[in-house]
Design a protein around this nucleic acid. Structure first.
Length: 705
DNA sequence: TGGCCGAGACTTTTT
DNA sequence: GTCTCGGCCA
C-alpha cells in the first residue's frame, strides 16, 4: 500500500504492521532491527493509528535515538523535533524539567556524571568520617548506583551487619546531599521520574493516555528500574513493542537484566514473538560460526541466523607465538588488505580489554598505519572542558558544590586546603551548600564569590557561545592555559567548546544555558575527534556492538582473556562471555580473523594462555588455519605445537594466583614455565615450595569469595 | 602549591 | 607495563 513497506521481508513486515498489542521482536544481529523499529513508527503515523505525539520511542544511546529520528524524517514529511524519541535518560530528564515541582527538584537542577558523583561521595565520606579503606568510594558508588538501578532508595535497602548499615547510611546521606545541592546523578534521573509518575496519578494518567504506542530498542539491556518505568507508562492499555536480542546481552555488569525479556512476555501478555533471523550483513561462514558458538549457551530464547548471501571466505585462524607476533601478523594482513583495496576504516581490530590495544597500537604505529582507538576520554570529560563547564554551572546554579570545589581554586587563587576545610565546616554547621557558606566569608573566598557574581551579571542576556567566551576569559582559565607549556591543545578544546555551543544553538532551538549543560552531561561527545581520516578502528568488543565492518580481527582469543578470567568461574559469567564472542563475530561482513598468542605480557607479567574454548566450538570446516608462518619464523625450541586438547575447565595460571592441590593444600604460584611440559612453582601454606608439572599435578584454582 | 615518588590496581561502561 | 592516587617535601 505504501512505499515505506517496500523491501521488507515477511517477518519484518509482520512486525512492522502488528496490531496494537504488546510484542517481542527477537532481532538477530544484522537483521534490520533499526529499520523495523523506525518503519513501525512511520507506519503507525502514516496509517493514522497515532499522531507523532502519541509515540514514545526509547533507546540506550543518543546515537541510536538520532538515527531513528533521521530515518523517520526521511520516510515521512513530519517534524520529528517534538517527538518523544530518545534515551531513557534523555526522556526522563525532559520529564523532570517539565515537572520539576512535582519531582521536587529545583528548576535548574544539574546532572552529575560518574566522576562528579564519585567526588560527591568522597567528600561526603570524609565529612562523615568513614574509613575509605574499609569502604572504597568506588564500591560505595557501585552500591548506590546498583541500588537505584533496581529501583531502591536507601530506606528500602536491607542491612544485615555493620558494613551494610554503613553503606545504607552513606547512601541516605548522599541522596540528601544531592537534594541540597540540586543535582541528580544518571540513575537518579530514571528513579526520580519513575517515583514521580508513581506518586502523581494525574501525571501518570496524562502520559499513559498520551503514549499509546511505546517502542523500545535493545530491550535485552534494560535494567529493573527501566523495566518498571516502561510498565508504569504502559499501564493496562498501551502496546509495548520491544525489540532486542538476548544473545547480544553484554551489559549485565551494569545492571542489564536479560530476564526482562521473559518477564515481558508474562507481564504484558505477549502473544506475538517475532524472530528476525535473516541476516543482511555477513556471509554464511561467519554466521555459522556465530550460530555454533552461541548454541552452546543454555540460557537463551533461541534463534538461528541465516543469509542468502552465500558461504563467503573461510574464517582465518592464526596461532601466534606471542603478543608481538600476533600484532605483527595483523599488520601484515592489514597491509595486504589495503593492497586489495579495502578501506582502512572498514577494518576493525577488536579485543576483550583495553589493555590489549597498546601492543597493537605500537605495531601499527611502527608500520605507519593510521588508526583510531575508541574508548578514551570523551570531549566533555576533558579536564579543561569540565573546568569551564563548572564555571557555567555555577552561573546557573551556584549551590552546585561539585562545580564550586572544582574551580574555587582553579586557576590558583590562593584558596588552600585549610580555607576549604573551614568553608566546609561552616556549610556543614548550617546544613547549607558551600556557596551559601562562601557568601559569609571575607578575603580570597569572597573574591571568588565576587567573580561568580560578576560572571552571572555579565552572562545576562548573552547568547550561549558568547557566555562561553566570557566565562573562559574572565575566570582566568584561558590565561592559565596560555601560560602553560602544553596548553595549546587545551586552548584548542576551549575554542571547540565555543563551537559546540554554536552548533548546539543552530541545531536545536534551545538557547538556554541549562539546556546546553544538560546536553553536555547526557551526551559526552565523540570518543575521539578526527573521524574524517581513513583509519583502522581499534576498540573493545563492547564498543563494537551495533557496528559492522568489511573485515574484523578478533585478537587475544585465549582462556583468561576471552573468556576473561574474572568471568569464567560461574555459568552466567561464561555465557555472557560467549555472547560477547557472538557479538564480535557478527560484526564482520566479509572477512573474519581470529588470533591467539601462546604467551603475552599482561599486568607486567608474561602469561601463558591456551586458546579460547570458543575456538573449539566452531566447526573445523569453517576455519582456515594459518600456522605456517610462525613455525618458520621461530626456532624449533621456542615453538610448540598449538594446544588443542584440553579439559572442560582448564584454568590459566599466573604468578600470585591462589591454587589448591589435593595433597599439599592451599598455596600461591611463584613462577611459571610454559612450553610442552609446562610446570609451576607453588608455595604451599603447609608443605613449602614445590615445582609441579601441570600435566600430572591436579592443581585447582582457589575459589574466590 | 606544585611536583615527585612509591604503592596498588588492573574487564567490559550505551547515560 | 603503565596509570592513578595519595602522601610528603621544597
Amino acid at each position: 500500500m505504501s512505499d515505506i513497506l517496500a523491501g521488507l521481508n515477511d517477518k519484518q513486515l509482520q512486525a512492522v504492521t502488528l496490531p496494537r498489542t504488546s510484542a517481542l521482536i527477537l532481532a538477530g544481529a544484522g537483521s534490520g532491527k533499526t529499520r523495523v523499529l523506525t518503519t513501525r513508527i512511520a507506519w503507525l503515523i502514516q496509517t493514522g493509528a497515532i499522531s507523532p505525539n502519541g509515540v514514545l520511542g526509547v533507546t540506550f544511546t543518543n546515537k541510536a535515538a538520532k538515527e531513528m529520528l533521521t530515518r523517520l524524517s526521511s520516510m515521512l514529511p513530519i517534524n520529528t523535533r517534538g517527538m518523544w524519541v530518545g534515551t531513557f535518560h534523555g526522556l526522563c530528564n525532559r520529564f523532570l524539567r517539565a515537572h520539576h515541582r512535582e519531582a521536587r527538584l529545583p528548576t535548574m537542577f544539574q546532572i552529575l556524571d560518574i566522576a562528579d558523583q564519585l567526588s560527591v561521595i568522597k567528600r561526603l565520606m570524609k565529612q562523615m568520617n568513614v574509613d575509605d579503606e574499609k569502604y572504597p568510594p568506588k564500591q560505595v558508588q557501585n552500591y548506590i548506583n546498583g541500588a537505584k538501578d533496581e529501583g531502591f532508595r536507601a530506606s528500602s535497602m536491607d542491612a544485615y551487619d555493620k558494613h551494610s548499615e554503613k553503606l545504607r547510611e552513606i547512601f541516605a546521606e548522599y541522596d540528601a546531599q544531592c537534594q541540597r545541592e540540586g543535582v541528580a546523578d544518571f540513575a537518579e534521573l530514571l528513579l526520580r521520574c519513575f517515583e514521580t509518575l508513581a506518586r502523581e496519578p494525574a501525571l501518570r494518567s496524562h502520559y499513559q493516555e498520551r503514549f499509546s504506542y511505546i517502542l523500545v530498542d535493545e530491550f535485552q539491556d534494560t535494567n529493573r528500574l527501566q523495566y518498571q518505568w516502561l510498565k508504569l507508562l504502559a499501564g493496562s492499555q498501551n502496546a509495548v513493542f520491544a525489540v532486542g536480542d538476548d544473545d547480544q546481552s553484554i551489559y549485565s555488569f551494569r545492571g542489564a537484566r536479560v530476564g526482562n525479556m521473559q518477564d515481558f512476555q508474562q507481564d504484558f501478555d505477549v502473544k506475538e514473538v517475532i524472530k528476525l533471523e535473516q541476516n543482511y550483513r555477513s556471509h554464511s561462514n561467519i554466521l555459522n560460526a556465530a550460530n555454533a558458538i552461541i548454541a552452546q549457551n543454555k540460557n537463551r530464547l533461541g534463534k538461528n541466523l541465516w543469509t542468502a548471501a552465500g558461504d563467503g571466505e573461510p574464517i582465518r585462524l592464526f596461532d601466534a607465538y606471542n603478543d608481538t607476533d600476533e600484532a605483527g601478523f595483523i599488520v601484515d594482513e592489514v597491509k595486504a588488505l589495503q593492497k586489495e583495496g579495502v578501506e582502512l576504516q572498514e577494518i576493525a581490530l577488536l579485543y576483550r580489554s583495553n589493555a590489549q590495544s597498546r601492543i597493537l597500537e605500537h605495531a601499527l604505529f611502527s608500520a605507519g598505519l593510521p588508526y583510531r582507538v575508541y574508548g578514551g576520554l570523551r570531549f566533555f570529560e576533558r579536564s579543561e572542558i569540565k573546568h569551564s563547564l563548572a564555571y557555567l554551572r555555577l552561573v546557573s546554579n551556584p549551590d552546585d558544590d561539585v562545580s564550586l570545589l572544582r574551580v574555587i581554586n582553579f586557576p590558583a587563587r590562593g584558596i588552600g586546603t585549610r580555607g576549604l576545610e573551614q568553608l566546609q565546616e561552616v556549610a556543614r554547621g548550617q546544613n547549607t551548600t558551600l556557596w551559601q557558606a562562601a557568601l559569609q566569608q571575607s578575603g580570597k573566598i569572597a573574591g571568588f564569590v565576587a567573580l561568580i557574581k560578576i560572571l552571572q551579571e555579565q552572562c545576562q542576556g548573552l547568547k550561549l557561545p558568547e557566555m562561553m567566551d566570557v566565562v573562559t576569559s574572565m575566570s582566568g582559565l584561558r590565561a592559565h592555559y596560555q601560560s602553560e607549556k602544553e596548553g595549546e591543545d587545551r586552548i584548542a578544546n576551549l575554542d571547540e567548546l565555543v563551537n559546540a555551543a554554536v552548533t548546539f544553538v543552530q541545531e536545536r532551538d534551545e538557547n538556554t544555558l541549562i539546556d546546553f549543560l544538560t546536553f553536555a552531561s547526557l551526551e559526552a561527545g565523540e570518543h575521539q575527534a578526527d573521524p574524517g581520516r581513513d583509519a583502522l578502528q581499534l576498540m573493545t568488543v563492547h564498543a563494537a556492538k551495533g557496528l559492522e565492518f568489511h573485515t574484523v580481527f578478533i585478537s587475544g582469543l585465549e582462556e583468561g582473556l576471552c573468556p576473561h578470567e574474572q568471568s569464567m568461574s560461574d555459568a552466567n559469567g561464561l555465557e555472557e562471555e560467549r555472547r560477547l564472542m557472538y557479538v564480535a563475530v557478527t560484526r564482520a561482513r566479509r572477512r573474519l580473523y581470529f588470533s591467539h598468542a601462546q604467551s603475552r605480557m599482561l599486568h607486567g607479567q608474561v602469561r601463558y594462555n591456551i586458546p579460547s574454548r570458543f575456538l573449539d566450538e566452531i566447526p573445523e570446516n569453517l576455519l582456515k588455519r594459518l600456522n605456517t608462518k610462525v613455525a618458520q619464523k621461530y626456532p624449533e625450541s621456542a615453538w610448540t605445537e598449538p594446544v588443542t586438547r584440553r579439559h572442560e575447565t582448564t584454568p590459566t595460571w599466573r604468578i600470585g594466583q591462589n591454587v589448591s592441590h589435593a595433597k599439599f593444600g592451599a598455596g600461591v604460584i611463584l613462577a611459571y614455565e610454559g612450553g610442552a611440559d609446562a610446570r609451576v612453582q607453588v608455595s604451599f601454606r603447609l608443605s613449602g615450595i614445590k615445582w609441579l608439572a601441570l600435566e600430572y599435578a591436579k592443581l585447582e584454582v582457589e575459589k574466590r569469595l
